[in-house]
Amino acid sequence: GFPHNFQETTYLKPTFCDNCAGFLWGVIKQGYRCKDCGMNCHKQCKDLVVFECKK
């Protein structure tokens, strides 16, 4: 597997964290999205993600 390539992201529609399944709250920059596989997560979850990037 590969490490994720997370970038701070502004979501335009309701989005949930792929790590904890919690809602990504806020208006802008609600969470992080992996540029390579599209995984979404909270800032506090991005260092805890157990799934490797599937590129």
Rank of each mutant, 00 (worst) to 15 (best):
G1E: 13
F2T: 08
F2S: 08
F2V: 06
F2Q: 06
P3T: 14
P3N: 15
P3V: 14
P3H: 15
H4W: 00
H4Q: 01
H4G: 01
N5K: 08
N5P: 04
N5M: 13
N5I: 12
F6R: 02
F6I: 06
F6M: 13
F6N: 05
Q7M: 14
E8L: 12
E8M: 15
E8D: 03
T9F: 07
T9C: 12
T9W: 09
T10Y: 05
Y11D: 01
L12T: 06
L12Q: 05
K13R: 07
K13Y: 13
F16P: 05
F16V: 04
C17E: 01
C17A: 00
D18H: 04
D18Q: 13
D18W: 15
N19F: 14
C20P: 00
C20D: 03
C20L: 00
A21R: 14
A21E: 12
A21M: 08
A21Y: 15
G22P: 02
G22E: 08
G22K: 06
F23T: 03
F23A: 04
L24T: 06
L24Q: 04
L24G: 03
L24C: 09
W25L: 05
I28R: 10
I28W: 09
I28A: 06
K29P: 03
K29Y: 13
Q30V: 02
Q30G: 03
Q30P: 02
Q30N: 03
G31S: 03
G31Y: 11
G31D: 02
R33S: 12
R33E: 15
K35H: 12
K35Q: 15
K35S: 12
D36F: 10
D36G: 15
D36T: 12
G38H: 10
G38S: 12
M39Y: 10
N40K: 08
N40A: 10
N40F: 04
C41H: 02
C41D: 01
C41E: 04
C41A: 13
H42L: 00
H42M: 01
K43F: 06
K43S: 13
Q44H: 14
C45R: 01
C45K: 02
K46E: 13
K46P: 08
K46N: 05
K46A: 10
K46H: 14
D47S: 14
D47T: 14
V49Y: 11
V49F: 13
V50F: 15
V50H: 07
F51H: 04
F51A: 11
C53A: 03
K54R: 12
K54E: 10
K55T: 06
K55W: 04
K55E: 06
K55H: 02
